[in-house]
Structures are given as C-alpha cells and as structure tokens.
C-alpha cells in the first residue's frame, strides 16, 4: 500500500498561460516514454524479478507517480482557464471537443496511452535493460521539451525531472551488476 503526502516532490511554477507547451508536455504524461508508462512498467515487473532488486523497482515506480503528478500539475496550470479559442490556436481543438479542459493519458500527437508501451518479459536482464532504455528515452524527451520551452520556471522543474531520470538509470545499471554477481550460486542440484 501507499501513504500519500499532499505535496509535490519538487515545486511546479508556471509563468504564463501556454496551452501549446501543455500539448508538448502531455508526451511525458501519456506518451510511450512518459511517467505513467514508467510507473506501471516498474511496479508490474517487480513481482517476478529476483528479490534483490524488487525494492528498487518499488521505490522508483513509486517516485514515477510523484513525477506524473508534477507533469499533471504543469499541464493543468498551463491550460487552466484558457478559452476554447486559445486551445484552438495551440492545436488543442481536438482535445477540447473530446475532453474540455480535462487531462487525459495520451501523447502530444493525441494517441491514447496503451499497455503496448511497456513490457514485462520475465527475464530479469531483459526487463532491467528495458528500464534503463526507458530512463534514457525519458531523459531525451525532457531535453527536447526544454528546448522548445521558453518558460524559465517550468524549465527549472523539467531539469529536476531530467536529473531524476539520470539517477534512476544509474540505479538500474547497478541492478544489472547485482544480477550479474556470482554470489548465491546454487550449490545443490
């Protein structure tokens, strides 16, 4: 189970109403390499992974939900009280007619989130390597979003999230080293 702390992992400040930026950011909400994919991937893989790395998947998967909330907050603030006309100008008319101002799990092109974005292969090496790749792809996505964003306060939060991807990648790489270690050799066959 989880305990909930009613605060964000890192503050989210948004300088101006900017639905277009929200359209780009939604990639990290419901996109293939987004935070929802990450959280669900890790928390699902943990059941069948060797005991030594279950805790890592548990902790990182949980943190991904904290990131998901931050992204949701950003998207919400960027679009809150925007007029239908403003949303239309930002290319969000299709989103508006389907969802009004509600958030939804899709990528910036409007494709709904799908479980095909994630995998649980059951082979510990394959699963952890997928996780490393996912962290690097998320890091890249943050870079490209920062490149198209000129909101300095939002970019500060995005840089925090990019840094967390780096730390997670490092931890998953350490998990591979743990899985490679020769200890716990089977002595009786």
């Amino acid at each position: 189970m989880w305990y909930y702390e009613k605060k964000l992992q890192y503050p989210v400040k948004v300088r101006e109403c900017n639905p277009r930026l929200a359209k780009y950011l939604i990639e990290q909400y419901g996109g293939a390499d987004g935070e929802l994919s990450a959280a669900l991937r890790y928390l699902n893989q943990r059941y069948t992974i060797p005991g030594k790395v279950i805790g890592l998947l548990n902790d990182i998967g949980t943190e991904e939900f904290a990131h998901l909330e931050m992204i949701a907050t950003m998207v919400y603030k960027l679009t809150k009280d925007a007029s239908p006309e403003q949303l239309k100008e930002a290319g969000l008319a299709p989103h508006y007619v389907n969802h009004d101002g509600a958030l939804f799990y899709h990528n910036s092109a409007g494709n709904p989130w799908t479980a095909e974005y994630i995998q649980a292969k059951g082979d510990p090496i394959a699963d952890i390597y997928e996780d490393i790749a996912a962290e690097e792809k998320a890091r890249a996505t943050y870079q490209w979003i920062i490149n198209v964003s000129d909101d300095p306060e939002l970019n500060d939060s995005l840089r925090f999230l990019r840094e967390r991807e780096i730390v997670h990648s490092q931890r998953f790489r350490e998990a591979v080293e743990i899985l490679k270690e020769e200890r716990d050799k089977k002595t009786i066959f």
């Binding site: 060797p50 005991g51 030594k52 899985l179 490679k180 270690e181 020769e182 716990d184 050799k185 089977k186």
Partner: peptide, 8 residues
C-alpha cells in the same frame, strides 16, 4: 562467469 544465476 556462470551462464545462469539462482535466487531463492
């Protein structure tokens, strides 16, 4: 190295 690892 071993080609296989075991866990409990």
């Amino acid at each position: 190295h071993t080609n296989k690892k075991y866990w409990y």
